[in-house]
Design a protein around this nucleic acid. Sequence first.
RNA 1: GGGUCGGUGCCCGAGUGGUUAAUGGGGGCGGACUGUAAAUCCGCUGGCUCUGCCUACGUUGGUUCAAAUCCAACCCGGCCCA
Length: 408
Amino acid sequence: MADLFPIGTGADASSDPDQQLSARLDQAKRAGRPLRIKLGIDPTGSDIHLGHSLLFRKLRAFQDAGHTAVLIIGDFTARIGDPTGKSATRVQLSAAQVDVNAETYLVQLGMGQAPAHSLLDFETPGRLEVRRNSEWLTALDLPQVIELLSISTVSQMLAKEDFSNRYGSGAPISLHEFLYPLLQGYDSVHVQADLELGGTDQKFNVAIGRDLQRHFGQRPQFGMLLPILPGLDGVQKMSKSLGNTVGLAEDPLSMYSKLEKVSDSVVDDYLILLTDLDLASLPHNPRERQKLMALEVTRARHGAAAADAAQLDAAKLVSGVAGSSAAAAEVLEASLAAVNFPARAFYLLSAVGLCASSSEARRQIQGGGVKLDGEKLTDPNQEFAGPEALAGKVLQLGKKTFRRLVAG
RNA sequence: GGGUCGGUGCCCGAGUGGUUAAUGGGGGCGGACUGUAAAUCCGCUGGCUCUGCCUACGUUGGUUCAAAUCCAACCCGGCCCA
């Protein structure tokens, strides 16, 4: 399912360890050294989602085959922002924000957990290097930067679709954005990567890495380009900034509920890319397929028991019997400790975190979207004297959001 | 550096002195419907324990009873020229 780059055609390709991955593997094996598999992630958000998990699953497969995963936390490049797939200049992140994000990434990848249950193997010696690219990128001086810049050309950069689109439509492109592919490529030089993993949209960046490695006298890396997972909307790629993701850290219920609602058009893609199921053996009814996919993906992350429970709970939620059902056990609790009584309904909603603001809460109540223990609230000014009147009850916003109120 | 056009709410984009928290789309959130979703229809889409008060049209000042709308300076962007 992955594309290799370069493909390695031509007369002598099959034996050239720079053109044919199998030749490189043989060579490494004879030399008794593992390959260095580079995967870079920019800690621009705080969640790893299913789109990323494709890459990590592949990286783990390399680890299990005895190779060294070189995970690069792009703490420096994140501050520039990868222009790939972007139609506007990215907001630059602060160093502190990047640090926080990087930390949560590692936890989600399984740092501190046993390899059997985690996405990456953090424990077996020699299987994982975690590097931050600020380590070497902050040390570059101007002559070195100029050297990097001299390796590529303006027309090469403008040939990249994202840049040409923006240039063509008159959107601004800052010069520093041209630096991104070069810096990412320089990462490959610094860690001496044999192979870089990435989505198919990373081909340009991987190719730049090869150019730079050659320039600095190293043998160029291979690129293994994995398909891009479509997002929940079924149209655009799964991406945090588009809000169409399923996060690995999400609880089974929300993971399942999101997945069982994806467009029919991407159900098969998810089955192929995220599960090991055989498509031919699956039911043809689209709804059945969809639910099976959601269940299987949730199982892979949370285990069969939790996934099955999530499926049951999801069914109960839509049929509207959530209040007292088993699902209620999983409902988030909200403390009334921070609420100042007497509390009016709209204030309660915002104080408990169900609505972003009290004005929004007021509107939701007026719109008929709020229930308390299954009973619709109609008056935003309805007053509650004290916590005793509310403790233990379930406050509901819309069909999917619940909070069980607890005293203290 | 010169010329020119422009910067409006999450995004796009109307509005060129006065019922303007600011038309209209998109997106989002809620409601109805359905096999979930989509599509469709309806409501909402600054904040505040709210029948009132506060903050908003790049920034800062100014003119005026009154400014997103006029003036000045500055900041930022597009295009053309250098």
